[in-house]
Each structure stands twice: as C-alpha cells, then as structure tokens.
Design a binder for these strands. Structure first.
Length: 463
DNA sequence: TTAGGGTTAG
C-alpha cells in the first residue's frame, strides 16, 4: 500500500498516481497534482501515468482550461504520451460539442506523430457527434493520409445514414469497404440494419441479417435483433416481432432482456392487443427476466396513450409500486400527460403536487406538460402559477407552449397578466422575438404604448 | 476508437 511504502520516504510519482486514482473529485485531484505533499524541497518528477490520470479526469469533468494547461506542460516535459490519452481528450471535446477543439487536439504537439486509425476514428466520431457536415468528415479522412479500417467506415456509414437519411449512400460506403478488402464487422452490419430499420425498409434489413451469416460468416448479435424488433414494432407487425423474440430466446448469448419485452408490451397496446400483455409478462417472469421500471412504464403509457383508461393506468402504477419497483419521473409524466389530454388538469396538478411526497421530483417535462395542459384547457391563470414555479426551479416552458400561452392571454385581453408574463418569458428566452412583438402590438395599443419601452427594456436586460 | 432496444415532450 502506498501509505506503508511512504513511511520515511519521499512522496513519489507512484504515490501521487495512487492518490489520484482514489480521488474522485477532479478539482481536488488537480490540487493534489499541482502540489503533491513534500514536494516543496525538490522539483517533483511526474510520471506519464500521473499525467494520464489527471488529464483523463479533467477531460471527463470537462475542465478544459486546466486540461490544456497540463497538456502544455506535458509537451514541455520529455514524456511521450500515448494515443489512448489523446483519444480521451478528443472524445471529451466531442461530448462537449466542441468540434474545433477536437480537431486542434488531434494535432496537439504533445502527442508524438504519426497518428493511427484509432485517433482518426475518435476524431471522426467526435465530429459526427457535433453534426459536422459530411463533406468535412470526408475531407478529414483524406487529409489524414491514414488507411481507414472497418471502424472508420462504420463511423462514416452511421454519420451518412443520420445526416443524409440515406441508407443507399451508407450502402455505397459498405461496397467501397469491400472493394478495399476491409472486412466488415458485426458493428458494420448492426449500423446498416439499424439504418434500414429507421427508414422503414424492413425487408432489406432482414435480408442483410441473412446475408451477414451466409456471405460474411458474422452472426447477428443483440444490437442487430434490437433494431429489427424496434422496426417491426414501429410498423405494427407484432406477430413477426413476437416470433423474432422467440428466435432470440433460443440463443442464450443474445441475452433476451426486459427492454425487448417493454418494446413488445408497448407495441401490443398500440395495435389494440392489450389482452396478450399479461401472458407476455408471465412468460418474461418464467424466463427469469424481472419486470423493471421500463416495462411498467410501457404498461402505464399503454393505458394512458392507447386505451385512455386512467384508472387502469393508476392501477398499473400501484402494481409497479407493490412489486417493489420505484416509479420515476417518466411514470408520473405519462400519467400527467394522460390526465391533461383528457382535460383533467386539476387532477394532473394534484398529482404533480404529490410527486415530492411520493419520492419523485417533478422535472422539466412534468412542468411543461402540466403547463401545456392548462393552456389547452384555457386556464391561463393556473398556467401562470405553474410558470412561476417553473421559473423558480430554473425550468422554462417549451417555445410552443410559451407561444400558445401568450396567444391565449392576448385573446383574453388581460394586459396586466400579459405584461408580467412576457417579461418573465423573455428573461427565460422562451419566446421568439416575433411572438412578443406580435403580442405587444396586438393588445397593448394606446393606453399601454408607453409601457412597451418598459417591456423592451425588460426583454433586453441580461438578468 | 465505432453500432441497439426500453417510458414521458419537443
């Protein structure tokens, strides 16, 4: 143990590494790194591992200025960091939606050239996450002068299918990779199958599932099955989805789980076959798969959305709680939405007020649905109360909700409420400029004209 | 370093 080893010895980079590993707070880890104990007398010799640990921690915590400063001192040292650390930095910038920083990191001089496909792939993925236009992704590939591998193609295929919506373009890339003798992996097929399913081309998705086994000797995994299951359920082909589930059950390695059952439960409700849900749940139990929160939520959503049977939905909530499953915001939000759609905004309001007692804090979705429900019912003063609570908690209504709210009050001609509302919404930045301009010009005519400037000041004020 | 499915809104 480091503490034992330290007895009578200097605090070395070995001890620092151990301490950094133990420290979960990134800021505290940084302080530790910058001033290690007993380091005042002589310059501390940092190991590559210490740099690795602290830079990874700072990257994960998105403490970028500190991370960059350590990268600079790493560069000034004689240490030669390896590519996985570079990848960690690049992906952190990608996750933070900072594509330019990701590109700069890729070329960071602290990391000795040359780059491998791994760094290039990490950069491509980071850029794709930031919705970088496809031509730029391809030019990054060209400029890199690195031979692409299967992963490179997988990332590009996914980006193409996501931005273009074009499976055919993705398929061209697949052909190109075969021409270049790059062997497709199970991820390649998973990506293509998902792309076919997303655009409703189920037949081609299933053809590919066959072809991957027969032509490429790659067995479909749980990802491939999950995409197919979703595709079938979206098309309402529940019978085929149920058969696919049986096919999964025959292959233990696929790990048939509650998420697949939740998909099926919801699909059965959607096509009006709720009578089959009970036996499906029993089957699931028989297979040792517990009905988790998501399965229960699927039931609640089915009763609310498809059956419009709120009593049954609340009974499903009770079942959920009795089975020891904790209801979450999604459970309650579904019920709030269900009540609002039936015009029962008072009940919805009561439920929201009761949520904290039930151990679940309302989230932004809860408030937005309640707010929208009240507006839809023409209860703008009630909605105003909810708005106050939202603002207090740092939430804002949706743009659409805010627009309907303002329009409603405008129609009612309540100038005083409109003044206060527009001001609050503007502070939240929840209202498009056209919305408040219209509202102000519509209702606030002569008597209120002088107030317009006040409103505008209010809208312009930063706080 | 890359892919999936599950519940609520938009």
């Amino acid at each position: 143990m480091p503490n034992v080893a330290m007895a009578g010895n200097k605090f070395s980079s070995y001890h620092l590494a151990a301490a950094l590993r133990r420290e979960h707070d990134p800021a505290a880890a940084l302080r530790l790194f910058l001033s290690p104990p007993n380091a005042a007398s002589a310059p501390f010799r940092y190991s590559l591992l210490c740099y690795d640990l602290i830079i990874s921690k700072l990257a994960a915590a998105r403490l970028f200025p500190a991370m960059e400063s350590l990268l600079s001192s790493l560069r000034a040292s004689s240490l030669q960091p390896r590519e996985p650390l570079l990848c960690c930095v690049i992906s952190a910038y990608g996750r933070a939606r900072l594509p330019a920083a990701a590109r700069r990191a890729y070329a960071h001089p602290a990391f000795p050239a040359p780059r491998t496909a791994r760094a290039l792939n990490t950069l491509l993925h980071a850029l794709a996450v930031c919705h970088t236009p496809l031509p730029e992704l391809f030019s990054v590939c060209r400029d890199a002068a690195i031979s692409p591998d299967a992963c490179t193609y997988n990332i590009l295929m996914r980006a193409v299918a996501a931005t273009d919506g074009s499976v055919d373009h993705a398929h061209l890339l697949f052909d190109e990779m075969l021409q270049r003798r790059i062997t497709p992996t199970v991820i390649t097929f998973g990506t293509l199958v998902a792309a076919f399913c997303d655009c409703g081309r189920l037949e081609e998705a299933f053809d590919l599932k066959e072809a991957m086994v027969k032509q490429y000797n790659v067995r479909p995994n749980a990802h491939v099955y999950a995409s197919l299951m979703k595709g079938l359920c979206q098309q309402g082909d529940v019978d085929k989805a149920l058969r696919l589930k049986e096919e999964m059950a025959l292959q233990i390695e696929l790990g048939l789980d509650s998420a697949i059952y939740a998909t099926l439960v919801r699909a059965l409700f959607r096509v009006g076959r709720k009578g089959e849900v009970v036996s499906l749940l029993e089957e699931m139990k028989g297979r040792g798969i517990p009905a988790n929160r998501v399965v229960h939520n699927a039931m609640i959503a089915g009763f609310c959305e498809d059956e419009r049977d709120l009593d049954a939905a609340f009974a499903a909530l009770d079942d959920m709680l009795k089975s020891g499953c904790k209801a979450d915001a999604v459970s309650y939000n579904t019920l709030v939405a269900g009540l609002c759609k039936l015009g029962r905004w008072r009940d919805a309001n009561e439920l929201v007020e009761d949520m904290p007692r039930r151990g679940c804090a309302p989230d932004v979705v809860t408030y937005r649905m309640l707010f929208d429900g009240m507006c839809a019912a023409g209860e703008f003063h009630e909605a105003d109360q909810v708005l106050d609570e939202m603002v207090f908690k740092g939430f804002s209504p949706s743009k659409e909700g805010a627009r309907k709210f303002v329009q409603g009050i405008e129609r009612e001609g309540d100038v005083v409420l409109l003044e206060s509302v527009v001001c609050r919404l503007a502070k939240l930045n929840a209202l498009e400029s056209s919305g408040w301009e219209k509202a102000l010009s519509g209702v606030l005519r002569d008597p209120a004209e002088l107030m317009i400037n006040k409103h505008l000041d209010c809208l312009r004020s930063p706080e």
